[in-house]
Design a protein around this nucleic acid. Structure first.
Lengths: 339, 339
DNA sequence: CTGTTAGCGCGTTCAC
DNA sequence: GTGAACGCGCTAACAG
């Protein structure tokens, strides 16, 4: 920068002003500065700016996994917003581990991210309550977090599961099983609660299986149930992984859908409209979740620390029950682009 | 840091030494320092370290899109390697636009990333040849780049397409169409070349359609071809998007696969083994592409700028033809986990 | 409108 | 084995 100043016959301060448009500079002078910057191929050093106590123009994003299309698309949307605001996105994964989450979040703080967007690994007793994190705005999505000031973006988990279950009941099913892969996950719990409410509302027993953690586990379970003649006539899958597992298992065991077993999944899966049968799902607005989270973060970033509200905003996005054939419905519904 | 030093009754330098294990410090003293750091909840400032001319412990990753499962999974693998090395990953998208790519790469440089992993938007005349970028190691994946020094991680595009086309020919097809969505993309070109070679080797005419950019476009095209009675009897889809488009179009138009039209796609798609018919594809080792790219970058990072080779390494990963039913093969092949 | 001074937090170079 | 001073590149505060 000193070189630029020298070449342009000005002080470093003038260069700084030109760069940041922070004050009026004589047009002539500015021109010389621009010229000098061009000649010297000068690029400002972000690290120095950050150190100077200013903004780092970066945000941190922390998701369980990028291999999950849901989180990948959220990250994609967030990045779009960040890009539009001229910010960088530091992205990393927690693998659902609170320790990793904490360590990574800490690490991002040291990097001076101005804000954090994350999928909390646990909704309660989060270690992110630490004093340190008070400096920056945080947005949680997919899963809430018990820190008052944090904004949350969620979807209608209970409501969606309830409607799906009711739909299955409407098809005459009484033996409907809920399939989850992790009893500790908020989304699983919320969706299970919706399922439970729908079942008990009509006096049906709730039947939950929460260890569907792999293709094999699901196949095994199904095989066992069938062996005992206790195969449910309908399933509700708590997320897209389980839906995929179940579809494969059903196929492998030659169980016809929806005749022998109906199913509805939570979260759209690719090609759901091309499978045989086509898949009925509760669709969440994936792209909106990411976009909204990012927008809310940047809104907070515009506020000074003092004027940030005590209590965070909590948005709950609506979900849609996309009726196709796996639930037992006859009519096909025309294809609509997801996300 | 000064506070820590004061509380521990030492100089700032000693604190620094303890932090970086850069020199022997009396065990007693070190203990006091650790204690003080704990009490004050001290965290080193990465920006200052970076400014001081040291390493930023971050890498930049630049992909066309995170909404594409292929790139998302690559990013995931890269992140895993970065995490293992204690590095942050700054991730952003180029949308396939060379201008955006250049701007974003530049921006990452200003952030002092130590290295760059990217999917080049164009393999020739890349603006990344700029002097600036000589400071850091670069790894290109999926698409090569015409800069001698950069490492590349590719897959057998030509070979895979060739084998797939040969397979279709083996099924007796003579009217096989190649479907692409962007004639400017390296991967499309390479796969088309493989297709072309296979066709011309047996004296068959190459038939390429390169504007399959949307669901509608594909359906339109198919409808038109059928109207003229010139529907190909087999298709080779250059990537997973096109495969999905084609499958839907075929389904919508009621064209039976593989009886009326056979197809093979490049790159695995989710649930390919559950579609009717199951999908024959050329599978690329997605996870390996990301992992290898990241490993190569970190290998370069271990070298000093002087000892970095003039010429980059070029790795080409093998692909597999996964035979299922859409090509016309009868036997089902058991499910194997992708990625 | 423009230049000068000072210091952000760290690590390196030199003394002790 | 340890501490003091300098400077990385930048900008907020104050002169001029």
């Amino acid at each position: 920068m000193a070189d630029v100043a020298r070449l342009a016959n000005v002080g470093t301060m003038t260069v700084s002003r030109v760069l940041n448009h922070s004050a009026h500079v004589n047009a002539e002078t500015a021109k010389r500065v621009y010229w000098a910057m061009e000649v010297l191929q000068y690029r400002p050093n972000e690290a120095a700016r950050t150190l100077r106590g200013l903004k780092s123009r970066s945000i941190g994003v922390l998701v369980p996994s990028l291999a999950d299309p849901f989180f990948a698309i959220c990250a994609h949307s967030i990045n779009l917003v960040a890009q539009a605001n001229g910010y960088s996105m530091i992205l990393t994964t927690s693998h659902g581990d609170p320790e990793v989450e904490y360590a990574q979040a800490q690490w991002m703080l040291q990097r001076h991210v101005e804000g954090l967007i994350l999928v909390p690994t646990q909704s309660q007793n989060s270690r992110l309550q630490d004093r340190h994190f008070d400096r920056i705005p945080i947005v949680a999505f997919d899963t809430p977090i018990d820190i008052k000031r944090v904004d949350c973006v969620l979807v209608e988990n209970q409501e969606g599961a309830l409607r799906a279950t009711q739909h299955l009941i409407g098809h005459g099913h009484t033996n409907i099983q809920f399939l989850g892969n992790d009893a500790g996950l908020y989304t699983i719990q919320a969706r299970m609660e919706g399922y439970r409410r729908a079942m008990s509302a009509v006096g049906l027993p709730a039947l939950a299986k929460l260890d569907c953690t792999s293709q094999e586990a699901v196949t095994q379970e199904l095989r066992a149930a069938r062996g005992q003649g206790k195969l449910p006539t309908a399933f509700f899958c708590a997320n897209n992984w389980i839906t995929k597992f179940l579809m494969r298992s059903l196929f492998e065991l030659g169980i016809r859908v929806p005749d022998q077993a109906a199913l509805i999944g939570f979260d759209e899966v690719e090609m759901a409209d091309l499978l045989q049968p086509t898949l009925t799902v509760v669709r969440q607005p994936i792209g909106d979740v990411g976009t909204l989270s990012a927008s809310m973060l940047f809104d907070s970033l515009k506020l000074s620390p003092q004027e940030r509200p005590e209590e965070g905003i909590r948005k709950v996005l609506t979900v849609d029950l996309i009726l196709r054939a796996s639930c037992g419905c006859k009519q096909a519904v025309p294809y609509r682009q997801s996300t």
